[in-house]
Design a protein around this nucleic acid. Structure first.
Lengths: 249, 249
DNA sequence: GCAAAAGTGTTCGTTTTACACCCATGT
DNA sequence: ACATGGGTGTAAAACGAACACTTTTGC
């Protein structure tokens, strides 16, 4: 049995040189329409269609989500959704907020629990997902029209991520296993929406002793190749507990 | 109509010289029992009773909460609950987290959205509440036995408050309209669970320019009377947006 | 006059900020 | 040889931590 009035929606973040992206799902308007009650008049339907273009158009996208099964733990269900969307287990996944305004979904009352996930780009090859055809990455600054309050959920996710990233070493979940210092810096710049000074940024990183020189360098770049670093897992775990301060400038 | 699988629970914080307190509600075990399904055998009932002492004992307390009405906004409902419990409107109220593990409530599936509220002690005279007889303040360090996962919800609320208080001027909602510097310091010490240095604390406060000398002093104290301060609302609103840094020592 | 809490400054080490040039690589 | 991004140090200012005594008041 499904709890129809409670859903989970996942804001799935990815990062690459083009910035932060979100994985979205193309809405099937016919499926959506099925959630309307059956015993309403065609007049009422017409009104609903006019008020909610999402019911009549195919240009809308949504977060990946679903209704919570009665017999599944809430966090577990979010993990299940994430696996369906990406084929990945063991992803960094956090609850954002629960959205419960009356009119957030047309005609029915649905309270949704938002989660956000951070995806390591080494693994986000969507071919692994059976749903791949309806899923697509969108740059945070070029989002398509979104259904319901999903734009708000994404904005809240970003705020939450921003707060988290300043005091805990979590942004790193968005990086590949080996990365350059410039990549980390640009990650922080995108998340915090702030330019930073390279020398100061690196000094701060160095003092944390969180990074290990992997000994490797970038390949095939048209400029001096940057060193590739990895995390020191012990230090990472310690900083996760103790916190860090990444409020820069 | 009520959404039976979604509830809201409020962690209502108060502060006075004895420290931080939480307003709790004495559980009526007979009412609780009514939420059990009717068609179960007496054997099953016996098992449930053994497994969940909350169903047979009157020593348990709970957060103040309720099931969400289908036609009420989630945040509005939390406000309604708060009004029922305290007689107060316009209270600082924030969502904590949504708790959705399978077995958190015996026999039924209930996902609960936790909120926390900060109460100005000038107004928390419980006589205003019709429910006053079953409500009581408990010091955070001397909590009675709590039902379900309500102890966890309180701990999460405290963590959330702690994080919030370090970077935004919210703890101040727990203070009366006029207060001494020592009161603020002791508020921060209780919330952050850390002794602070008076001189450094006051220097920090002074730099924020958040406080205005009210011109008044404490009355009838058996020692030098302390000055009473108030907030500068403009600065307060600015700091709410910009944030502040109260990580001391 | 004494008990109890209020109130107040300085020093030192650390952290933050601002800032500009040379280096390595591919084309 | 040039374009591109990689990589590095220093000085000044702000901040944080540690620390002890005098003042006011009521009893």
């Amino acid at each position: 049995m499904i709890l129809n009035s409670i859903s989970v929606d996942c804001v799935i973040f990815g990062f690459d040189k083009s910035g932060l992206s979100v994985l979205l799902n193309q809405i099937d308007k016919d499926a959506l329409r099925k959630s309307l009650p059956e015993q309403i008049s065609s007049d009422q339907i017409k009104q609903l269609y006019e008020k909610h273009p999402v019911l009549t158009s195919d240009i809308y996208w949504s977060l990946f989500g679903g209704h919570v099964p009665e017999q599944q733990d809430l966090d577990e269900f979010a993990k299940t959704l994430l696996f369906q969307a990406t084929g990945l287990n063991d992803v960094y996944l956090q609850q954002i907020h629960t959205f419960g305004s009356l009119e957030r979904v047309p005609y029915t009352r649905v309270i949704t629990v938002g989660y956000y996930a951070l995806i390591n780009p080494d693994y986000y090859d969507l071919k692994q997902s059976t749903l791949a055809k309806s899923l697509q990455w969108f740059n945070l600054n070029e989002l398509p029209p979104l259904c319901f309050d999903h734009d708000q959920i994404i904005q809240q996710a970003l705020l939450k991520l921003r707060r988290e990233v300043m005091y805990h070493p979590v942004g790193f979940h968005l990086l590949p296993d080996k990365f350059t210092l410039t990549e980390i810096q640009s990650l922080y710049e995108v998340i915090l929406n702030k330019k930073m000074d390279t020398r100061n940024f690196r000094k701060k990183l160095a003092k944390m002793e969180l990074l290990i020189d992997s000994g490797e360098k970038q390949q095939n770049v048209a400029h001096r190749a940057a060193k590739l670093y990895q995390f020191d897992i012990q230090v990472y775990e310690r900083l996760k507990k103790e916190g860090l301060n990444f409020r820069i400038e």
